[in-house]
Design a protein around this nucleic acid. Structure first.
Lengths: 199, 199
DNA sequence: CGAGTGATTGACTTAGATCAATGACCGTGG
DNA sequence: CCACGGTCATTGATCTAAGTCAATCACTCG
């Protein structure tokens, strides 16, 4: 899902970098679309703003995330994007991406495949949010994140980040993991979790 | 997002229909992928099953939903798909879709655009689930679902369906809407909601 | 060393879930 | 035609799991 690797040189060579102060707009509703962004560092949020000035957050992108994949296919932006912190982004120009799609169907197919995979994982994450119980939600995550052996999970980041991904507070996540360990359902070794059995 | 309309005749003519009994498998992990499905009626769930036989639901598709867009780009299925109720699905064969992508780049681009739009709306729905308060969640939905005038929302289905979409019980949704109406934040006329002001 | 972050646990509160009941409405089949 | 079963909308009472606030410890980094 890292974007730069999969781009042909023609595109990645044309990449430009932009740095944003906290609160600065990356683009505004109504402006012509210019390409796909990748957040290098910091946090950037896409928001729709209604007539009263209320923000409704549409997406929050952090380091490594891509931004505005759909703008390749629309002439103007339909929302604002604002830096939540100081942030650095890379821009891959739209015209070049589109012409590269034409020139190299293999690349276009790869791009579509990447989008399709994203749709899948997003659906899965959304499905997980339909689970009310914290424990069941954690279980869902563990089952779907298990490695080759089907029962070992290597946690990617901090537990605080995982809690946010699961839609829980970190305190609840700690307690839930502690209880699962106490019940013998999992075993923890730092950032590795082994699923033993389901109680 | 209805799939059939956007397909070229070469593909939609090759569509086949299959009916599933409740509990019947549409496909199983490890089987070769055959194409994109569209659920006509009933409910179908994609699940990953671990070694102990626990199901982790990856996606639930209902009438009108597409299924398995990512399987166009992978040789075998990575999960099981099972009918939750009696269900009817349409199959659009993979080989034909892929060859049509080659033959008609415009179609391929349209398909990628559809996926990109889906990524966007999924991100938005997921973002909404990060909002803890029921009222704020409803507000988020209303702001982003307002029609051209920016303040009128036509509810698409029943409130029960909307509650599920928002990740709330229907009781809580009723109460929240009632409170918002009592506070003068919204006005309701059957399935039309007018957002007045934010309190 | 001190500030900052992550991990963890305890005590307490609350918003949302759950259970329950009611009325409106709609289709349908006798 | 009307009674019935089903679904939806709505509200009340109650419960509980998750959120919130707070404190502690370990660790790292400049």
């Amino acid at each position: 899902m890292a974007i730069a690797d999969s781009l042909p040189p023609a595109v990645s060579n044309a990449m430009t970098i932009r740095t944003l102060r906290s609160g600065e707009n990356l683009f505004r509703q109504g402006e012509p679309t210019v390409g796909i962004y990748e957040v290098v560092s910091g946090v950037v949020r896409m928001v729709r703003i209604d007539r009263e000035g209320n923000e409704a957050v549409v997406h929050v992108a952090r380091g490594g995330d891509a931004l505005g994949e759909a703008t390749l296919f629309t002439p103007i932006y339909h929302c604002d994007t604002i830096a939540t912190t100081r942030a650095t982004v890379r821009l891959y120009p739209k015209a070049l991406l589109l012409s590269e799609f034409k020139r190299d169907p293999k690349f276009a197919e790869g791009y579509a495949a990447m989008l399709a995979r994203q749709v899948m994982t997003l659906r899965t994450r959304l499905e997980r949010r339909n689970i009310r119980s914290a424990r069941d939600r954690v279980r869902h995550y563990l089952v779907l994140s298990a490695g080759r052996d089907g029962c070992t999970v290597q946690l990617p980041g901090t537990l605080i980040e995982l809690a946010a991904e699961l839609g829980l507070t970190h305190e609840v996540l700690y307690r839930t993991l502690a209880r699962m360990a106490a019940d013998g359902e999992i075993e923890r070794n730092g950032s590795v979790i082994k699923v033993k059995r389901v109680v």
